[in-house]
């Protein structure tokens, strides 16, 4: 088991040098814009009760990103957490949580390059959140309003969010990659592996969301409308209980 000796020595995010300077500057601008909008809009998702949740969700994502799981053929994946954060604390707060995680990893742990911070925040902090929340909202609109609908929505959101980020990386690599490799090769390899990793992401996300739903559904951003509805429905049930 020699692999244990160099465990976690290898960073897992986009390092310095994969993308050229103009592309890194562009992703830096995109990330800065995303964070700036999130800073203005996250306030409406947060109050005294949910602000500590944002800290805990970010800490949980940092911790879980350390847990690489094998996906076969000597390859591993880890949770990204953008879809999970979007469901638990709301999409704007999720962008802030992801950005704090990615900045901490780049600056303190040298995981992800310093010049690649904009790339990593754009891919994992903005795109996974946006793709994940879009899928979640779509599923919530189509599925019955129930706790199961929230869990299924978070599963599918996470499943799609990972290959979405991989596809965005392929686009960036095509535009500003520092190596000459055919688009088809990078696309099929990146998206192929990340579909597998997305399955792991989906299970971890659904498990986490259903765990929080089991103890405190009122703290799950994606279940807020559900709770209002349930409170209105609870009276006839109680009346029936009392009658029997």
């Amino acid at each position: 088991m020699t692999w244990r000796s160099d465990r976690r020595e290898r960073p897992v995010h986009v390092p310095d040098g994969f993308l050229d300077a103009p592309t890194s500057l562009a992703t830096g601008a995109l990330a800065a814009a995303g964070v700036a909008v999130a800073l203005r809009k996250a306030g409406r998702e947060l109050d005294e009760k949910t602000a500590p949740m944002a800290g805990l969700v970010a800490a949980f994502i940092f911790a879980t990103q350390m847990l690489n799981f094998p996906v076969g053929a000597g390859t591993s994946g880890h949770l990204i957490g953008g879809a999970l954060a979007a469901v638990l604390v709301g999409p704007w707060t999720a962008i802030l949580c992801m950005s704090v995680v990615l900045l901490t990893q780049a600056l303190l742990f040298a995981d992800g390059g310093v010049t690649a911070i904009g790339t990593n925040v754009s891919l994992m902090g903005v795109i996974t959140v946006a793709a994940g929340f879009a899928v979640f909202s779509l599923v919530r609109r189509m599925a019955p309003r129930s706790a199961r609908g929230v869990v299924v929505g978070s599963f599918l959101a996470a499943l799609v969010s990972v290959p979405a980020a991989a596809a965005a990386f392929v686009f960036l690599f095509e535009v500003g990659g520092t190596a000459e490799i055919s688009l088809a090769t990078v696309a099929s390899a990146m998206i192929g592996w990340h579909i597998l990793i997305g399955v792991g992401e989906a299970f971890i996300t659904a498990l986490t969301v259903s765990s929080v739903m089991a103890v405190r559904p009122d703290l799950v951003y994606g279940a807020r409308s559900l709770l209002t509805k349930r409170q209105l429905l609870i009276r006839p049930d109680h009346a029936a209980d009392v009658a029997t």
Binding site: R7, V12, A63, T75, S76, L196
Partner: peptide, 13 residues
């Protein structure tokens, strides 16, 4: 985390 897979992740692979 000590027991996490040491294999390269998707991007590194």
């Amino acid at each position: 985390s000590y027991y996490a897979s040491g294999s390269p992740d998707g991007l590194n692979k």
